[in-house]
Amino acid sequence: MEMSANWLSRISLRGDVGCKQLVGMGELDLYGQHRALWKLFTVAPEDRTERAEFLFRAERKGSVPVFYVLSRQQPIDRAGLWHIESKPYRPVLNEGDRLAFKLRVNPVVTRRTEVNKRRKRHDVVMDAKCQLNWNALPTDQRPALADIVHKAGVTWLQARAERLGCSFLEDSIRVDGYQTWRQSGLKGIELSTLDFDGILAITDPHRFSAALVEGVGPAKGFGCGLLLVRRL
């Protein structure tokens, strides 16, 4: 199965960007990264849809970010700040294909509160610690945090495999990079992220194609959800 064309881009700061600009870009928080990348696209309000206009993942090259961006529109640098390498993204996918993958997500579970029975999202790692009654456990009886992160992360990922149109080879999955981010100010946005890498097999090319372009999980505006794959 061949996907409709999108653009996959690697975006980094130009080498001639001034020191002041370089420091400022290096300190962009998750919300600031999304705002900076939006400036590379021009989308009329009437052309916007429920699908995210672009998915992105930020990584570090020294002290400054490098972005991997999947978008419907080719990004264009109008401010003279960025070095953009773009190519059409139209992978040919077949059932049974095995791919190496990388994925950063905001992994949450939804539970009802005891007070008003409303449904509330919880960070899967904190939820796992709560289920273990972590704070009440003697220190020497607490599982290693890395073990909790791995088990909670793999459970979250495997629960989504069918709807994503793939199966994850559990022994290959590495879970890392557990971080919690809070936005200062009145909005009080808080989210956590996990990084996965490993091997998957495509079981449903149509669903998997949709997962690639629509992303995985919530918080896509904060650098989560972009499923990066390569053939083995």
Score class of each variant (00 low, 15 high):
residue 16 D to Q: 07
residue 9 S to F: 01
residue 227 L to M: 08
residue 16 D to C: 06
residue 90 R to M: 12
residue 129 K to D: 05
residue 17 V to T: 12
residue 140 D to V: 01
residue 90 R to Y: 01
residue 118 R to S: 13
residue 136 A to S: 11
residue 178 Y to A: 09
residue 124 V to C: 14
residue 29 D to H: 03
residue 193 T to E: 10
residue 85 E to R: 06
residue 11 I to R: 03
residue 22 L to V: 10
residue 147 D to N: 13
residue 59 E to C: 09
residue 116 N to S: 15
residue 84 I to N: 05
residue 73 Q to M: 08
residue 209 S to N: 12
residue 211 A to D: 09
residue 216 V to I: 15
residue 18 G to R: 12
residue 75 P to H: 09
residue 47 D to V: 01
residue 185 G to I: 05
residue 100 A to S: 14
residue 155 T to N: 14
residue 2 E to R: 06
residue 89 Y to E: 08
residue 117 K to Q: 15
residue 42 T to K: 13
residue 223 G to Y: 01
residue 29 D to M: 03
residue 153 G to F: 03
residue 41 F to H: 10
residue 93 L to W: 02
residue 95 E to P: 04
residue 163 R to K: 14
residue 64 V to L: 08
residue 115 V to S: 13
residue 40 L to V: 04
residue 173 I to R: 09
residue 144 A to V: 05
residue 211 A to K: 02
residue 47 D to M: 09
residue 213 V to S: 15
residue 57 R to Q: 08
residue 49 T to N: 05
residue 130 C to L: 13
residue 175 V to Y: 05
residue 223 G to R: 02
residue 101 F to I: 06
residue 171 D to Y: 04
residue 75 P to M: 11
residue 160 R to G: 09
residue 232 L to M: 10
residue 132 L to M: 15
residue 75 P to S: 10
residue 227 L to W: 02
residue 159 A to F: 01
residue 155 T to S: 14
residue 228 L to Q: 15
residue 72 R to T: 13
residue 131 Q to L: 13
residue 227 L to T: 04
residue 141 Q to K: 15
residue 165 G to S: 07
residue 232 L to V: 10
residue 212 L to A: 12
residue 94 N to M: 12
residue 75 P to F: 04
residue 95 E to G: 08
residue 200 L to Y: 03
residue 180 T to G: 11
residue 23 V to W: 03
residue 48 R to K: 14
residue 181 W to R: 12
residue 138 P to G: 03
residue 153 G to E: 11
residue 94 N to I: 06
residue 36 A to E: 13
residue 196 F to A: 06
residue 213 V to I: 15
residue 51 R to K: 14
residue 98 R to W: 05
residue 29 D to N: 15
residue 159 A to R: 14
residue 67 F to M: 06
residue 195 D to Y: 02
residue 11 I to L: 05
residue 185 G to Q: 07
residue 88 P to V: 10
residue 167 S to W: 02
residue 198 G to R: 11
residue 143 P to C: 09
residue 123 D to R: 00
residue 136 A to H: 06
residue 32 G to W: 00
residue 201 A to F: 00
residue 48 R to E: 15
residue 148 I to A: 07
residue 5 A to C: 07
residue 91 P to F: 03
residue 99 L to D: 07
residue 75 P to V: 10
residue 86 S to C: 05
residue 181 W to V: 10
residue 130 C to H: 10
residue 189 I to H: 06
residue 124 V to W: 04
residue 212 L to I: 09
residue 86 S to A: 13
residue 126 M to C: 04
residue 32 G to T: 04
residue 165 G to A: 08
residue 184 S to L: 07
residue 219 A to D: 10
residue 230 R to L: 02
residue 173 I to N: 06
residue 149 V to A: 12
residue 20 K to F: 01
residue 138 P to I: 03
residue 53 E to H: 05
residue 38 W to Q: 15
